[in-house]
Simulated assay, not measured.
Amino acid sequence: MDAHSIKVACSSCNLRELCLPMGLSHDEMNKLDHVISTRKRIKRGTALFNTGDRFTSLYAVRSGFFKTCITTADGRDQVTGFQMTGEIIGLDGIVSDQHSCDAIALEDAEVCVMPFDQLETLSREFNTLQHHVHKIMSREIVRDHGVMLLLGSMRAEERLAAFLLNLVQRLHARGFSQSELILRMTREEIGSYLGMKLETVSRTFSKFVEDGVIEVKQRYVKILDTEALKRIVNPQVCN
């Protein structure tokens, strides 16, 4: 079946509270259903879009996990983010009408296609949607600031602790465990995102295990002591 022939309705999607505004009227939801009417399946390891592709749509992750990355001047892949169910990909394309990064599926995934010109038109029609689009953009800016803080001022242990806490918090908001997760990304990809060498990532994971903070079995991670992770990130906070 062609990816663009898969029909989807926001009104009947159990993820809509994650990626769409609350409080839309029945009429507004019907209009949104008409705009966001197709899904696209992306196989693990393949690109949803690449750097330089023409920007036409935003994408809501319906299932699966993505990484966004850019190629640096010296040819290295730099991971700029990880996106999961209920999050929006493609905002990078708005500024110049073409994508400035690659979005690669880390596992078989499915996205809802949101044509941006139609979304803009609809946003002008009802303010709730416009406000929500602005909130999504603002969230990206805040996240970028968080990454800059990670890379600019934190030690290796602080970076990895903050990363794990952020990941499990985002997964918990989607109904998953507060303490257990499967890492969809490799240690190398984590290192690229956090500005750490692969050996440093592995060594830091090992230290957390030795200290009884986490348990690790390949990509499975169980957080045994959330407060200890928080203290690593904010050592000045005393309970």
Rank of each mutant, 00 (worst) to 15 (best):
D53Q: 09
N166G: 13
I136W: 01
G175L: 08
P115T: 08
S192F: 05
A47D: 15
S12W: 05
I36L: 14
V113S: 03
I223T: 00
V8E: 02
G45F: 14
L198R: 15
E120K: 12
L129S: 02
L181P: 02
F176C: 01
S25K: 15
H99K: 07
F55A: 11
Q178L: 02
C101M: 11
T128Q: 14
R159C: 08
F126G: 02
G93L: 03
E107V: 11
G191W: 09
R139H: 11
R39S: 13
S192M: 05
N239A: 05
V61C: 06
V95M: 12
S202D: 12
S202V: 10
D144Y: 11
F82G: 08
N30G: 13
P21I: 02
A103Q: 08
A156M: 08
D77H: 11
L167T: 12
T68F: 01
L224M: 09
D27G: 08
E158M: 08
R62E: 14
E28D: 14
D225V: 03
S153R: 15
E189T: 06
I36S: 09
N166K: 12
F176S: 06
R174W: 04
R231V: 00
T72I: 01
R219P: 08
T85K: 11
L91G: 10
C19F: 15
L15G: 13
D211P: 00
K207G: 04
N50S: 13
R54M: 04
T56H: 11
D27P: 02
K135I: 03
C101W: 00
M137F: 10
V147W: 09
A73V: 06
V113E: 10
L167C: 10
S12A: 15
S63H: 06
I182C: 07
G212W: 03
L224I: 05
R44Y: 04
S202P: 00
K217H: 13
K217M: 07
R219K: 14
T204F: 03
T51E: 14
T226M: 12
T46R: 13
D27I: 12
L224A: 03
E180K: 15
L32K: 13
T85G: 00
M148C: 04
V221T: 07
C13K: 04
T51V: 06
G75I: 02
S138Y: 12
V216H: 09
I104N: 01
M114I: 07
R184K: 14
S202C: 07
E125V: 08
S100I: 10
G75W: 02
T226W: 00
F66A: 03
M196I: 07
F176W: 02
K31S: 05
Q130H: 11
Q169Y: 09
M114K: 04
R170D: 13
L20E: 01
R159H: 06
L151R: 14
T71P: 00
L198Y: 12
S11P: 02
G75M: 01
D117E: 13
E215M: 05
I104Y: 12
F49E: 08
V35D: 10
Y193H: 08
E87I: 04
N50P: 00
M148R: 12
G81H: 01
T121G: 14
I70G: 01
N239L: 04
V237M: 12
K217L: 08
G175I: 06
I94T: 06
F208N: 03
N127G: 11
K67R: 12
